[in-house]
């Protein structure tokens, strides 16, 4: 028996009103207490319930690679992102902290889906820009500072095979600051960043992962295990 009653199969979360969704969530939690509330998690994201269920298969895999507890620990996140268990990395740390919305040291399934949803092609640009600002605001001061940007660039270069000299990194960071720090105070605030991202949409293009648009089609192996039948 599926987790969601047959009468609801084929409906996207958008087609369920809130009351129905809450009732459905209650039924769901009664039937299988160990499964996440897929309907509730899908609401407020561009993902359908089936796609959230597909993401759960992926989540289960990642969250059991080191510690088998269905939670993503930083080491598991590092391995999944970079395929290695290298030393601590600033870039991974910051990305992990953004996914770990509760700040309890692990990424839960709901956090995983909500964070990934920012990279969905259907997510609003404002949401992508806000997430990116938090990523660059390494020490969470409310500003992007020059040294933070440089540290981030160095950290990602350290994990990549790109060979960029220290002088070139300085030039890249200087040039970026010249472009975005319109107030000229040596730091980029939210207002400057928003304006810069609006005028230069290419800085947000990597905040979209095209295959998230229809994850059950791109990753059909997930559908094999799906318990929710969702028609067009």
């Amino acid at each position: 028996m599926g987790c969601i009653p047959t009468k609801h199969a084929g409906q996207s979360p958008d087609s369920l009103d809130r009351r129905e969704a809450v009732a459905l969530a209650a039924e769901t939690s009664c039937e299988k207490v160990n499964l996440p509330d897929f309907v509730n998690i899908a609401s407020g994201t561009p993902f359908t319930v089936s796609e959230v269920e597909a993401l759960h298969d992926l989540f289960r895999k990642i969250s059991n690679t080191v510690v088998k507890d269905n939670l993503i620990h930083k080491e598991e996140f590092h391995v999944a992102l970079f395929r290695n268990k290298k030393k601590q990395n600033l870039f991974v740390d910051r990305l992990f902290d953004l996914f770990d919305q509760k700040g309890n040291g692990v990424i839960e399934f709901g956090e995983f889906v909500r964070s990934l949803s920012v990279f969905h092609p259907g997510a609003p640009e404002e949401q992508k820009a806000a997430f990116a600002f938090k990523l660059y605001d390494l020490r969470q001061t409310g500003f992007i500072e020059r040294n933070e940007l440089k540290e981030m660039v160095c950290a990602l270069l350290d994990e990549s095979e790109l060979d960029i000299t220290s002088d070139a990194v300085e030039m890249i960071v200087d040039r970026t600051f010249d472009q975005a720090d319109t107030k000229g105070d040596g730091r980029i605030d939210q207002e400057e960043w928003t304006a810069f991202a609006k005028d230069n949409p290419y800085v947000l293009r990597n905040m979209t992962l095209p295959y998230l648009k229809d994850i059950t089609m791109v990753f059909p192996s997930f559908v094999v295990h799906s318990e929710i039948s969702e028609a067009d």
């Binding site: 990602l156 960029i164 293009r205 905040m207």
Partner: peptide, 25 residues
């Protein structure tokens, strides 16, 4: 020419590429 790169683009490119790795886990 690396100088043509923007630091924001470089960082977000890395975030996008590496998050893509999640799906090959």
């Amino acid at each position: 020419e690396p100088v043509a790169l923007n630091a924001f683009e470089l960082i977000s490119m890395s975030a996008g590429l590496n998050l893509g790795n999640l799906f090959d886990s």
